[in-house]
Amino acid sequence: MEGPLNDRLHGSRCAGCAVAVYPADPACPRCGGPAAPAVLSGTGTLWTWTVQRYAPKSPPYVVPAAGFDPFAVGYVELPDGVRVLAVLDIPPEEVVIGMPLRIGAGDGVPRAATVGAAV
């Protein structure tokens, strides 16, 4: 399947602490020791979310060519032991804590969608 969600997140992991982070950081935020690059899982569950109901201030926000539409955003918990902030390509009324999601790198910030959704 083609699409941004197939582009896995490139984070990092500390061997000593088993702490994973995104984006990759050469140092572990917990112990300060070296962290190695790690490709993170492409699936997870939604830990929390909200909906951006109004257009954020521009700059820095870049309004899409088609105009602003409210969008969902949330933290996706991965089996790697990290929660990653992502734009949710899901209609706001369908978003529920705990829902299984696919997550990928997208063009800029991470993006997530329901498992099985064509993205």
């Binding site: 984006p23 700059p59 820095p60 926000y61 870049v62 734009v87 800029g108």
Partner: peptide
């Protein structure tokens, strides 16, 4: 990354 601002997460 600037993307967090461009995409409305700041």
């Amino acid at each position: 990354d600037e993307a967090y601002g461009h995409e409305g997460l700041m």
